[in-house]
Design a protein around this nucleic acid. Structure first.
Lengths: 218, 218
DNA sequence: GCGGCCTCAGTTGTGCACAACTTTGCAGCA
DNA sequence: TGCTGCAAAGTTGTGCACAACTGAGGCCGC
């Protein structure tokens, strides 16, 4: 079956996506197709298929003869994109919210534990990872596949905005705010109130962009 | 400059996209990379780049050794996807609506003319084209780039649902309904009320999915 | 000293041959 | 007659060589 080959490419896509979104590949970095191909022990051809996807997702920019560059964080569109993310976060609770199961509660407990660990010893990288994984969890609370897809797509486009700012903001303070958000949503999940969870998420995204704006105005 | 080469691929993408969305390539049709490459006088390699995009957009499905097939209309997810489209249509009027200009009014007049012509002699193909062009116009009423992109993406995924049903519904009746929608939105545009235009659009998408549901229940 | 040009190394884009795989149809056999 | 196996044709996926292009460094003319 060729499904395993497709899975392999999907896995490489995931890997590179994480590296970009977690700033392992900083914006404006030049990636080499040949180097990536060597790393994953493939030829350039299938790698180019993966890079093309990342380019379509707005995370890479290939320039003939020059190189493949990690896109810069789109600060100009920031406010508008965040506004849309905000709306979508709210829709998660209104369009086909899923019923909370024991698996959800277990997963939620895992996030609360990770948040506690982060609070004990703040670390930008682990912060970013927790943020990404938790966002995916939040998106999984709707049964609307298109909404999940759009939300994730937007998240990948904007995740780096906040992440690049956080190093200049107070990491400890942001960790505390994030831990509080997770605690609040955990409570909603325990009560089985999916819509409340989504609304809290929406509020925090809104607050986050407000903090960012205040920061950039200073 | 390699921009012209990129434009060329973009143009091919547009062409194939239209063919799929306008049912020129019917669902389940098998496309041949070699044949398309021959048509556009390119090798398979850049064509594969284009087909990959269409696959990522959910319009094609490549199977190793078997062929690349036009995806079937996603009837199962229909209700949920349309629900999201509905919400996004409403957001067009609320998130960064653009100010109506003379160009908008001229363009709108063009749509009203085309609608009148369609009403005189109903034709499924021209109906589909008008629908697609008018949707793009509607999307252009927001300054929120992400919202435009998401709306279009969703439109391409669902356009065929309605289009395949319309041949079995009453084409003349649907044309009349569509012409009325265009007239109503035209009035809003003339008055410079972007939000009203978006709201009317939203209502009509909702009505459309209701008609579809009634039809499938019969 | 400085500006323009050119060469060269390095990168992405394209074409082509072959590998991997699926489907179809036919031949052979029970 | 029906079924199984196989071969062949056709398709997408991969690897590789080369074309197209960019940017940097050095060289030459002034």
């Amino acid at each position: 079956m060729s499904a395993e080959a497709k899975d392999r490419l999907e896995q490489i896509y995931e890997t590179l996506l994480r590296r970009i979104c977690l700033l392992e590949y900083a914006p404006r970095t030049r990636l080499s197709e040949a180097q990536i191909a060597a790393e994953f022990d493939l030829s350039r051809t299938p790698i180019r298929r993966v890079l093309a996807r990342l380019e379509d997702a707005g995370l890479l920019d290939s320039q003939h003869g020059a190189g493949t560059f990690v896109t810069d964080v789109p600060l100009g569109e920031m406010a508008r994109t965040y506004a849309l993310r905000c709306e979508l976060a709210g829709l998660v609770g209104r369009l086909s919210p899923v019923a909370i199961t024991a698996a959800h509660r277990r997963e939620m407990q895992g996030f609360e534990d990770r948040a506690a660990a982060l609070l004990a010893t703040p670390d930008a990288r682990r912060f970013a990872e927790l943020n990404m994984d938790f966002f995916r969890f939040g998106v999984s609370l709707t049964g609307n596949e298109a909404l999940r897809e759009m939300s994730l797509r937007l998240y990948y486009q904007t995740a780096r905005i906040w992440l690049t700012s956080i190093t200049r903001l107070d990491l400890a303070a942001e960790s505390e705010i994030f831990a509080r958000e997770i605690a609040q949503i955990g409570e909603a999940i325990r009560l089985g109130d999916t819509q409340a969870a989504a609304t809290i998420r929406q509020a925090h995204i809104s607050l986050c962009v407000t903090r960012l704006r205040q920061f950039s105005q200073e």
